[in-house]
Amino acid sequence: MTMIDAARRQAEAAHRDQQRKGAAGAPYIGHVAEVARLVAAWGASEPVVAAAWLHDVVEDCGVSLASLEAAYGAEVASLVAEVTDDKTLPKAERKRLQVVNAGHKSVGAALIKLADKLSNVAEIGREPPMHWDEARMLAYVEWAETVVAGLPALPATGLQQFREAAATTRAAIRRRGEAGRD
Rank of each mutant, 00 (worst) to 15 (best):
L111K: 03
L111G: 05
I112E: 03
I112N: 03
K113S: 13
K113D: 08
K113Q: 14
K113W: 06
K113L: 09
K113C: 09
K113M: 14
L114H: 02
L114Y: 01
L114N: 01
L114T: 00
A115S: 15
D116W: 00
D116L: 01
K117R: 12
K117M: 12
K117W: 02
L118I: 00
L118N: 06
S119T: 14
S119L: 04
S119A: 15
S119N: 12
N120R: 13
N120V: 14
A122E: 00
E123W: 08
I124H: 05
G125Q: 05
R126M: 10
R126G: 06
R126H: 12
R126D: 12
R126Q: 13
E127Y: 02
E127M: 07
E127R: 07
P128W: 03
P129I: 04
P129D: 09
P129L: 09
P129G: 12
M130P: 00
M130K: 04
M130S: 02
M130I: 06
H131V: 05
H131G: 06
H131W: 12
W132S: 04
W132H: 07
W132E: 08
D133C: 04
D133Y: 02
E134I: 13
E134D: 15
E134R: 14
E134T: 15
A135K: 10
A135W: 03
A135I: 05
A135Q: 13
A135L: 08
A135R: 11
R136A: 15
R136W: 08
M137F: 09
L138A: 15
L138I: 07
L138H: 11
A139D: 09
A139N: 05
Y140P: 11
Y140C: 14
Y140L: 12
Y140G: 11
V141G: 14
V141N: 13
V141S: 14
V141E: 13
V141M: 13
V141Y: 11
E142S: 13
E142F: 03
E142T: 14
W143R: 11
A144Q: 04
A144M: 04
E145H: 03
T146E: 15
T146N: 14
V147P: 06
V147T: 07
V147F: 08
V147M: 07
V148M: 12
V148K: 11
V148Y: 11
A149C: 09
A149F: 06
A149Q: 09
G150K: 01
L151S: 10
L151E: 09
L151W: 09
L151C: 11
P152Q: 07
P152H: 08
A153C: 13
P155Q: 08
P155D: 10
P155C: 09
P155T: 08
A156S: 10
A156K: 06
A156R: 08
A156W: 01
A156P: 02
T157K: 07
G158S: 04
G158V: 00
L159P: 05
L159R: 15
L159W: 10
L159F: 10
L159I: 03
Q160I: 02
Q160Y: 02
